[in-house]
Nucleic acid binder design. Structure first.
Lengths: 207, 207
DNA sequence: ATAATGAATTTTGTATACAAAAAACAAAAA
DNA sequence: TTTTTGTTTTTTGTATACAAAATTCATTAT
């Protein structure tokens, strides 16, 4: 992602924000003319943004019916976690194989402020969490892998549902991933990354 | 994919075909008005198709410059193989875990005509190969995983480059994957699927 | 009151028009 | 000849217009 269509990126970002913050609710129909007017543009560039969002799984198009804000069922979020497991596992493997110290350091920095801390601010930690998972993908320097990062948005959706595991539980898991990457242990890095996501996925199953 | 935008799917398919068969060459600029006229439509629906193709990595957009047919460097194809390794590996695991006999049978059928055959027709085998890898994804019944199947197109590109390993080598690998899935051995299925793709990737490195 | 039918309204999908930016070209200067 | 500058042409990006389809609403029949 990043620098989407330079020109309609503002539109893309605005609509995305409206979806994330619930201004446009899941399942709601996106009436193009209405939204276009709100944003002060015509339907043509709005449509481009909507098509981009469709490819990120945030919007669903039903031909001749319209565009709808995607609403995720349990099964769908489950499926997304399966994909994340595969992709982030591979990302961890690749980073472990690389010997770019600087990248490894960046990952480490995400959680440094929380180590040994008794009272962790949930909001700050959630930000660091997202930052970490995003970095994991970006640092692999693999453009297709990066492109598939529409999962990131869904990650936010999951957070909004309050399905975040407590820091006491995940901080250690994050650190284990980082350590395996640091030590160049590719198998271990992939295993930890996958287990980390698998645990969240299983939590999801039990509501 | 499948049933893209019902209405502009014909446009989408035609442009895709033009790219696959080389009518539009890698790196070539797509002059919208020209192509639109060729297809007998206006730029508006063509743009939708091009945006879909952009998301499949077949077209690249440079803002205010235009849309270009994507040309793949070695590095990029390598990166795509990395993604395939992660995703098809996961797909093999999921299928091994399922106990849907019918799905497993479908996979098996792909290569039945070639088993024990002394002279294998390369074209027929290549088709079966693609069918198998496509099925592997489709049968998982995981929509996001399926959506990421723009790799399929790239698979074709790779075939066009003549980078296909001989059936004597890969037939056995395919059968091993299918057997592991049949026996419900998830770890083995994932391992075989990944090694299978990894071997192609390594071949790619040595031209 | 409920269901069915048909008009009125809304909304999508596509074509077209036009301004702004980029590319191509030609003429002039180094 | 090569580079620079200015002009013309092409092409993109966006707005708008309009037909076809879908939806809504009111009217009629059950």
């Amino acid at each position: 992602m990043i620098e989407y269509h330079n020109l309609n990126e503002p539109i893309y970002l605005k609509v995305k924000e409206m979806i994330i913050n619930g201004e446009l609710k899941p399942g709601e129909k996106i009436i193009q003319e209405k939204i276009a007017e709100q944003l002060g543009v015509s339907r043509t560039p709005l449509m481009k943004a909507l098509l981009a969002l469709e490819n990120e799984f945030l919007v669903e198009s039903i031909p001749r019916r319209g565009m709808y804000v995607k609403s995720f069922g349990e099964k769908e979020i489950f499926d997304i976690y399966i994909c994340r497991e595969a992709l982030e596992g591979m990302a961890a493997r690749l980073l472990a194989q690389s010997n770019n110290k600087q990248k490894k350091e960046q990952l480490k920095q995400c959680f440094v402020p929380f180590i040994g801390q008794p009272n962790i601010n949930i909001n700050d930690y959630a930000k660091a969490d997202e930052q970490f998972h995003s970095l994991l993908i970006k640092l692999t320097d693999n453009a297709p892998l990066d492109k598939i990062y529409f999962f990131g948005n869904i990650h936010e959706q999951v957070i909004n549902r309050g399905l975040l595991r407590p820091p006491e539980e995940t901080l250690d898991e994050h650190i284990k991933i980082i350590q395996a990457i640091e030590h160049g242990n590719a198998n271990q890095a992939e295993k930890c990354a996958r287990e980390h996501i698998e645990k969240s996925r299983i939590l999801l199953l039990n509501h």
